[in-house]
Design a protein around this nucleic acid. Structure first.
Lengths: 219, 219
DNA sequence: CCTACCGATCGGTAGG
DNA sequence: CCTACCGATCGGTAGG
């Protein structure tokens, strides 16, 4: 009788992906050998090639599953009912929470997505664009001044900068929780965006924002 | 008589560094061979080893010269006279301006600094800590609420997040100049920081910041 | 005839 | 400053 697919096949495939992501994050994609991956996963190299046709497929699947998880969660957060500000907060909090157990995948995305050939890279960049699009829409809805085309992208990318850079310094058990930092970023953006947008859209010298702070005047 | 060092020796060494940085940024450190570097620089591989003892020395020198340039410029900006807010603006503007011609070096710093062995990595991390220290001091001076130990690091790292992420989206000739974006970031931080700091330091529910915005109330 | 898995080794290329 | 190579290790595949 033919052997059926092992019932832990998918579990094993996923655990290989995560372990590989950790190795890629530490030593780089090219700097991590298939032998190293096999050893770290406690399987033979031949078994590795049973799960994935080649090394490139491992990198692609790491990033594909990571980005699809982000897109699905952010789309759900975006579809939830509520005020625009609350939606923005949920989106940002969701991203930071997903990063909790995806630090390696996140670093691989930043350092190694570009190493894939164009046909494998393109669908991943499309997922990234979906995330940027949802964040931009949420910002435009929550921050009136952000609707201006000239500043929406810089504002959205500033938010992604803060979120995507957090792996460099954020440590679990520090003085701020992830939820704290999500609130921190949201409030920074909400309170600061009108001012920042006004600064780069009005003519030099005279401002017309009623809420400009004393410090902003000094610029 | 012994040959003297060629008068363009240092120029050539620097151009090799920059070309290597571009290759490392595109294909990764391990993914770029010494033969590729030699070909791209129009020199033999043997000449490459005349300038640098090994591949690791090229990576180290790329990052060392890049970070020393950043530290020197930021220290000078920090030492200039003027109001704290103006000093913060100068520091942020200086960093964005230096990144103009150091995109490759910047990407190599993010993706490949970690690949160096500890003894080579440590002095580079020390330079990074100097930059973070100056930025933190400038923020503490310009933003009263930022002085609280619990929030100074998150605020400083949020600023570095925005600045260090800009290579992912900022394009020369777009609607915003580098100076525009520097202003944008400074005003975002100045106007938003008091609010953001209050959010994560006060007890839950009730706030006491007089300047809380309508949007912030909704959180 | 299928999938699951092993020990051993392939042709090429890496840094030096 | 070059060509000619080295010891080792790479990603990937063979037979069973």
């Amino acid at each position: 009788m033919a052997r059926t697919r092992a019932k832990d096949y998918d579990d094993k495939a996923l655990s290989i992906l995560h372990r590989s992501a950790e190795l890629f994050a530490a030593s780089g994609y090219v700097g991590t050998s298939m032998n190293t991956i096999a050893d770290a996963c406690g399987v033979s190299k031949a078994l590795l090639y049973h799960y994935y046709p080649d090394k490139e497929a491992i990198l692609f699947d790491i990033l594909s599953s990571h980005l699809q998880e982000l897109v699905a969660a952010v789309e759900q957060a975006n579809a939830a009912p509520g005020e625009p500000v609350q939606r923005l907060r949920t989106i940002i909090g969701t991203l930071l929470e997903l990063y909790r157990h995806a630090d390696a995948e996140h670093q691989v995305q930043i350092a190694s997505l570009k190493l894939l050939p164009k046909d494998k890279r393109e669908p991943l960049l499309a997922s990234e664009r979906i995330l940027v699009g949802i964040m931009s829409d949420a910002l435009a809805a929550a921050v009136p001044a952000a609707k201006q085309k000239r500043v929406l992208k810089p504002l959205a990318m500033s938010v992604f900068g803060m979120l995507n850079w957090h792996y460099m310094w954020f440590r679990e058990g520090g003085p701020m929780t992830r939820t704290d930092y999500a609130d921190f970023v949201v409030r920074l953006v909400l309170a600061g965006a009108d001012e920042a947008v006004a600064a780069v859209t009005r003519p030099r010298g005279k401002g017309k924002s009623a809420s400009r702070s004393r410090q902003a005047e000094l610029l």
